[in-house]
């Protein structure tokens, strides 16, 4: 049997908007993925969880303006801990130029702004697994 894609979903920091992440998690489950739902977490906990859960993908939601610091920190810690193969996705509200910068300079695999369709997200995750 092939391994199902394991996704770790977390809200960065003290983000209180939970519906979005939970909804996305439900959709990923229906797309056949195994989603470990973490809730609010800081980068250290997220990376610790990614290690123990042997995650292929980490999904971070952010709505409170901490995306430029905490997002890249997750990527950096993952690399330091030998989890450089993990693809990090981000979703949430941020200026489009920040999204471009996160992808181009900070090792975020893909940033999804609020109006992204669920199909796009699912396909994005699946294709990131095929590349590697």
């Amino acid at each position: 049997m092939n391994r199902r894609i394991r996704v770790l979903m977390a809200k960065l920091g003290l983000d209180i908007h939970w519906r979005g992440v939970y909804l996305v998690s439900e959709f990923l489950k229906e797309a056949g993925m195994e989603v470990v739902y973490l809730g609010n977490s800081f980068p250290e906990q997220i990376v610790e969880a990614a290690i123990e859960e042997d995650a292929d993908v980490v999904g971070l939601s952010t709505l409170s303006g901490n995306h430029m610091t905490l997002g890249p920190k997750v990527v950096k810690l993952l690399k330091e801990k030998g989890m450089g193969h993990v693809k990090v996705f981000m979703g949430g509200v941020m200026p489009p130029k920040d999204a471009v910068k996160l992808e181009a300079e900070h090792g975020i695999h893909k940033v999804y702004l609020p109006d992204t369709s669920m199909e796009t997200i699912i396909e994005g995750i699946k294709s990131s697994m095929r590349d590697s």
Partner: peptide
């Protein structure tokens, strides 16, 4: 779908710096 939403970990607030545990 065969997929799953695994929601037990969210209840673990024991910090791994203080407590030595492995959760799967």
């Amino acid at each position: 779908s065969g997929g799953a939403l695994l929601g037990d970990r969210i209840r673990m607030n024991a910090k791994s710096q203080t407590y030595d545990y492995f959760f799967r």
